[in-house]
């Protein structure tokens, strides 16, 4: 039983990371109906940036904040420079561009920081919280950070004028433009937010999976699985899906398939959802008019 609770707890910790990665994916999906395959590598690159700052002797939270801001600006810049020219291109072209971006970030990280696996610091050192034995301090802290991100994103979209404008731009670009919303910039800000959220996910995942240029491939895959499971057009569904996938992955890895083939759990979830319930648990069923 103890072992089971322990597996459940570490599943929740990684699930939080998957949840906010899935949220970042959904944000871009809602606005463009595209999935950003470079999300994981962008997050990995941000995490290396944070590692460099802490390596220079910066305090953790200052490095954290600066990384989030820089990632936001980087995301905006990528949207304006690389993604924008392909706005009207077919899906295939966009996917190829995203794959290109992912390859570039992977190569850049290897080039600048090398390919060796590195430790990443955590701000949540010390004994486990609340006197329990199932979750390390970092795992508890990581869940807390994930929940904070989810709540902040909810509050941003629900209560701020900018959030409202972004939702409007995603839902109905033409009408939004008519009432004076700068739709193009809303999309760029969306990319910035997604990059910033990805950076947080990377920094929370790195102490667990360790820092190397390929660290996010698995995380991104689980985030995909979470987004597909929860419904790729529903932010809360995707966040729920992320947590669910984290728990499922850990339990399946520990008790059913063995930890060395855990990635196929994500594959099975994606294929299974597409077969039985393509809109996901909470997604809208799409009806296309031809």
């Amino acid at each position: 039983m103890n072992e089971f609770l322990h597996q459940l707890a570490s599943g929740l910790a990684l699930g939080g990371v998957y949840a906010i990665m899935a949220l970042a994916l959904v944000m871009i999906y809602q606005a463009t109906q595209l999935v950003n395959f470079a999300q994981g590598e962008m997050a990995m690159f941000s995490t290396y940036f944070a590692w460099k700052l802490t390596d220079l002797g910066w305090p953790y939270w200052r490095a954290f904040m600066v990384t989030v801001v820089v990632s936001f600006l980087g995301g905006v810049a990528i949207e304006r420079i690389v993604v924008r020219p392909f706005a009207k291109a077919p899906v295939l072209a966009s996917v190829i561009v995203f794959i290109g971006l992912a390859l570039i970030f992977n190569a850049l990280a290897g080039w600048i920081y090398g390919y060796s696996v590195t430790d990443f610091p955590t701000p949540f050192d010390g004994p486990p919280w609340f006197g329990q034995r199932y979750m390390s301090a970092h795992e508890s802290g990581s869940v807390l950070v994930s929940l904070c991100v989810l709540m902040l994103v909810y509050a941003f979209f629900r209560f701020t004028p900018l959030g409202l404008a972004m939702r409007a731009a995603a839902q109905n670009p033409t009408s939004s433009r008519l009432v004076g919303i700068r739709v193009g910039w809303m999309l760029a800000i969306g990319w910035g937010l997604a990059a910033a959220i990805g950076a947080i996910a990377g920094m929370m995942a790195a102490p667990i999976v360790y820092l190397d240029p390929n660290m996010m491939a698995g995380v991104l895959l689980y985030a995909f699985a979470g987004a597909v499971l929860g419904g790729i057009d529903n932010p809360f569904g995707a966040a729920f899906g992320g947590f669910a996938v984290g728990v499922l992955e850990n339990l399946m890895g520990a008790y059913v398939v063995g930890s060395e083939v855990k990635l196929s759990v994500a594959l099975a979830i994606i294929v299974g959802v597409l077969v039985w319930r393509p809109s996901g648990l909470f997604g809208r069923r799409l009806v296309a008019r031809v």
Partner: peptide, 23 residues
């Protein structure tokens, strides 16, 4: 399964296949 739901889902599913294959 993947073909019925547009190109993007196929990209997702095949991406998952590629990542899981070595394992």
């Amino acid at each position: 399964p993947a073909l019925r739901f547009g190109g993007l889902y196929l990209a997702l599913a095949t991406f998952a296949l590629a990542v899981a294959t070595p394992q």
